[in-house]
Each structure stands twice: as C-alpha cells, then as structure tokens.
Simulated scan of single mutants.
Amino acid sequence: MNTTTRTFSRTFADRNLGFISQAQTERKTSRVGFLLLEHFSLPCFTQALDVLVTANLIAPGAVRVHTFSHDHGEVISDLGIPVRPDTPLTDIRLSDLDLMVICGGLRAARTVPSWLSALLRKIARLPIALGGLWNGAWYLADAGLLDGYRCAIHAEQRTALAERAPHANVCHEPSVFDRNRMTSATPNGAFDMMIHWLAHGAGLQLADAVLDRLDADQSKHRSVQRPQQPKVSKPLREVIALMESNLEEPLSPGQLADVVGLSVRQVQRLFKDQLNTTPQKYYFQLRITEARRLIQNSSASIFDVSIACGFVSCTHFSRSYSAFFGHPPSKEIRYEI
C-alpha cells in the first residue's frame, strides 16, 4: 500500500518526536557531569537525571551522563541512600564535559574544602558550563564564579549567600539560567533547570518532547524554546480543551466557535497566529496522537481505538497512522496488554 508521508505541526511534532522515524537525525551528544557532595539532595539529583534519561529514551545517544565524587567513593544522599559514582574525577574526563553540576543539599557542609574550590576554578577556565543543585550555588560563589551572575539557592541559605557573595545576584526563583551558569533551589527547580539546559545543549525540539513526556500539563500550551512567545490565549485554550474532551465525536468548526462565543474565522485566526496551524489540522493530529497513546497503553483493539478517536473508517485510520508514524497501528508497540 503506497501511503503519502505526512508531517505533524510543531505542537504535535514535539509530542511525537520519539515515534517518528524521520525524526531520528544525527545530533551532537551533550555530556553532563554531576559532582555528588556528601548529603546531596537526592530528589534534586533524580529530577535533573530524569530529564536526561528521558531525552535518551526519545533520542538515543543525545546525552551522556557521568557521576563523580571527590575520591570516586560511595556518597550518601540526604535520604540515607548511597550512590556510587561511575566516573573518576580526572582532567581527561572533565575536558569531555559540556556541563558540570554541583549537587548540594540541606546538610551538605558549608565549609568549602580547598580541593573543591580548586576544581571549580579549573573547570571555569575550560569551555564548560557550571551548575548547582539545592545549595550548589554556595560552592560556586565561594570560588568567585558567580560574581556578576544571577543565581538560585535554597531559601534557608539565601540570605547567607547574599552576604557571603555580594557581587552575585541571589534570586528568589526556584531556578536561574544565566549564560554559562545555571542553579536551582528545589527539586522542581532542578527539573526546569535541566529542561532549559537540554534545549541549549541537545536541541529545542528534544527539550519540548521531554517536557511533554514528563510534564504534559506544563507543555501543552508552552514551548521551552520560545519563552518570548505570548502564552496561548484563554479562548484558544478553551477550544483546545473542547477538542480534547470530544475525540470520539469530533465537533465541527461551527460548534467549536459557538461554544466559545467566537466566529469560525476568529478561531482560525487564533490557531494561525498562536500555533501556526489550522483548527482542522490540530484536531486531526490530536486524535492521531491520542490514538497512539491509547494503543501503547491499553489492550483495546485497533477498531475500538479508531472509534474512540473519531475515525469512522478503520482503513482511513490505518492509512493516516502510517502516514504520520511510518507503520500501521497494528505494528505499534504495546506497553500494557
């Protein structure tokens, strides 16, 4: 069967990045290191790590992660769970990195050992970005590496850091990305920090895809690569919500417009101006994307999925699915049967 290839609009290309064969393009591997300090915040570390691991699930080889400690020995986290680093802390290893993240924690010592200050200054002379989790900014500032930078640190040490590093701009945000310095104060901040790093270091499209996979509520109406873009307007959010609630029996353009009190032309303009697509294309790609999720995560038959997603013809559904994903729905991977 000769099926014409179809492409997703930007919103759905991000959501389906890992499932579109033509999206598997060659990309530079981003290398990230985590230096674990005694009593480091395990929740911060795992939030940041989750972003990178998910990036590799979507685009294998996109990120290479290394974990370090001072003496390459086991480090105890703030939750009492030991973590054994996988990489020795050597000059050769460091030179391979694009980003080194200092993993602090509530009980991590505020007295900065000389080896750490020396190491951070050495890294700062290399083309490597520096980051800090929880109170990681404390160690960067002590080495003089946050002068003239905005930074984030856990609230308990915010005042102390402002006094200790008067030339640093200590902020109240959970995460701050300032040129080649990035810091976070909370686990959620660590997540956001690493999403922004991924956009910078491994690609904007991949960062959006990871955000969609891990935090769909945030990513639905936002793109990390275009922070300057206005947020999707309330009327358009209402139209999208209607579409999401009416997959089995799709509403007509007129019905969608009537519910939100707009004309069909006004709705079309909203989609064009804010999402660079048409309502019809958005609705169709929404249904195809939801069909993929349903197939992967349920034991429903292909016929039932096609009906649930508003396709009156199973043949039309199969052809459309193949055009977008490169294979028919019958060949889709099922995670739960």
Results as ranks from 00 to 15, higher is better:
197 W>F: 13
269 R>I: 10
265 R>I: 14
196 H>F: 09
270 L>V: 05
190 A>D: 02
269 R>T: 12
249 E>T: 14
278 T>D: 06
253 P>G: 11
223 S>C: 02
225 Q>C: 05
175 S>V: 14
244 E>Q: 15
266 Q>K: 13
192 D>H: 02
238 E>W: 01
184 S>P: 02
269 R>N: 10
174 P>D: 15
256 L>E: 03
263 S>M: 09
244 E>V: 13
269 R>D: 10
236 L>W: 07
185 A>W: 04
263 S>F: 11
233 S>E: 06
275 L>K: 05
260 V>A: 02
266 Q>H: 13
235 P>I: 00
259 V>S: 04
254 G>K: 03
260 V>T: 08
277 T>S: 06
240 I>S: 01
237 R>L: 01
209 A>V: 06
254 G>R: 14
180 N>L: 09
257 A>T: 05
218 Q>K: 14
186 T>G: 07
224 V>K: 03
257 A>I: 04
191 F>S: 01
171 C>L: 09
234 K>C: 00
274 Q>F: 07
206 L>S: 01
181 R>T: 12
273 D>Q: 15
180 N>R: 09
224 V>I: 11
242 L>V: 05
192 D>A: 10
211 L>P: 06
246 N>R: 14
264 V>S: 04
243 M>R: 01
255 Q>I: 14
193 M>I: 02
256 L>R: 09
176 V>G: 04
240 I>T: 04
253 P>L: 00
220 K>M: 14
175 S>I: 07
206 L>V: 02
182 M>D: 11
198 L>K: 05
220 K>N: 08
224 V>M: 05
233 S>D: 03
244 E>K: 15
176 V>W: 02
262 L>T: 01
258 D>S: 11
255 Q>L: 13
277 T>V: 08
184 S>L: 09
229 Q>E: 09
169 N>Q: 14
274 Q>G: 06
227 P>A: 03
194 M>T: 08
263 S>Q: 14
190 A>T: 11
252 S>I: 05
266 Q>R: 14
215 D>N: 12
205 Q>S: 02
269 R>L: 10
259 V>W: 04
252 S>L: 03
213 R>A: 12
178 D>S: 09
174 P>F: 00
191 F>Y: 11
271 F>H: 07
